[in-house]
Computed example of a mutant assay.
Amino acid sequence: MSADVMTRPRPRAVPEARPGRPRRDPGRVLRLYVPLGMYLIFTLVPFYWMLVFALRPAGSADPVPWPITFEHFETVWNDIGYAVFFRNSVVVGVWSLLVTTVIAVMGGYALARYRFRGRSLFMVVLLCTQFVPGAMMLIPLFSIFKTLGLINSLGSLIVADTVFNLPLSIILMSGFVSAVPFTVEEAAMVDGCGRLRGFLAIVLPQLRPGLIAVGSFAFIHTWNNFLFALMFVSRQDSFTIPVGLSYTIGEYSADFGALAAGGVVAALPVVCVFAVVQRYLVHGISAGAVKG
């Protein structure tokens, strides 16, 4: 055998790609993370400046809140009466959440399990109500609440927010119920369970993601609602947080520190709710969107 053949290097074997592990694509990483990073910056910068205004001393223009002060939080909580506004918002939000969830479960179960005349038309009407702005219903609702003696009470806000939360909640809950096989209920009925007992023992535990999703949306919508709280309540001791925030803005000036501190207090419960239930929201929304 000749010398050149003896010294010729052997070609390296190309390693086979492991199944189940896709090759890393730098272009895909660039296309994915650059837009997400830009969106994250666009979203978080306003929150950062809100924290800066809330934590830095009055009159300071530093982009970093140092030294940190909580005087603005004391101003909105004690002087402006934010403690009362916060309590009112919690009462209205929790009651609206409970009533909306209970009625949505019953309505969604009826739409998913029963076939009756006008069912499709009823679903269309529920969907069409989502296109009606709340401002168009202010005068009729004000007249009804005045007749019932609910003006300047938290009951008017609970009723109004519940009514506007119900159509979408019922539609979503009907999708959640449809995702539960009816054969499971039939098996429970064969074992002696009635319709109500079978629903409570079999169906309701499987609706937990849907209940959390519907309740979260109802609470957040009620918490952020400004229009109803402004129109149906005129006493300061019945104001909610969105209306109370407007008291930090005067006719010719605005207390940006107090306004930012109030915004932090207003956003904190919503952030906590999303942090706790975010793992249920995606599953719940997808389940309610593809069924029914």
Rank of each mutant, 00 (worst) to 15 (best):
T7V: 07
T7R: 03
R12A: 05
A13F: 12
P15D: 04
R21P: 01
P22L: 01
P26A: 11
V29A: 08
R31G: 14
V34W: 06
L36G: 05
F42S: 10
T43I: 03
T43K: 03
L44K: 14
M50Y: 05
P57V: 05
P57S: 00
P57E: 04
A58T: 14
G59F: 11
P63A: 11
V64S: 01
P67N: 07
F73K: 06
E74V: 05
T75C: 13
T75V: 15
V76S: 10
V76E: 09
W77Q: 10
Y82C: 04
F85Y: 08
F86A: 08
N88F: 03
W95D: 05
S96M: 02
S96E: 01
T100F: 01
G108S: 03
L111H: 00
R113A: 11
R115D: 15
R115N: 15
M123E: 15
V124W: 11
L126C: 15
L127E: 12
F131E: 02
G134M: 08
A135I: 12
M136R: 02
L138S: 09
F142G: 02
F145H: 01
L148M: 00
G149C: 04
I151W: 01
L154S: 00
T162F: 00
T162G: 03
N165D: 12
L166V: 02
P167C: 04
S174M: 01
F176S: 00
F176I: 08
V180W: 01
E185Y: 08
A187H: 10
M189R: 04
G192C: 02
R197T: 13
I202N: 12
Q206W: 05
A213W: 00
T222K: 10
T222Y: 06
N225F: 03
L227M: 13
A229F: 02
M231K: 01
S238M: 01
I241H: 07
P242K: 14
L245V: 08
L245S: 10
Y247L: 12
A254S: 13
D255C: 09
L259I: 09
A260R: 08
V264I: 14
V264G: 13
A266L: 06
A266D: 06
A267P: 11
L268D: 06
C272K: 06
V273H: 04
F274Q: 06
V276L: 15
Y280T: 14
Y280S: 15
L281G: 08
V282F: 11
V282D: 10
H283S: 12
G288K: 04
K291W: 12
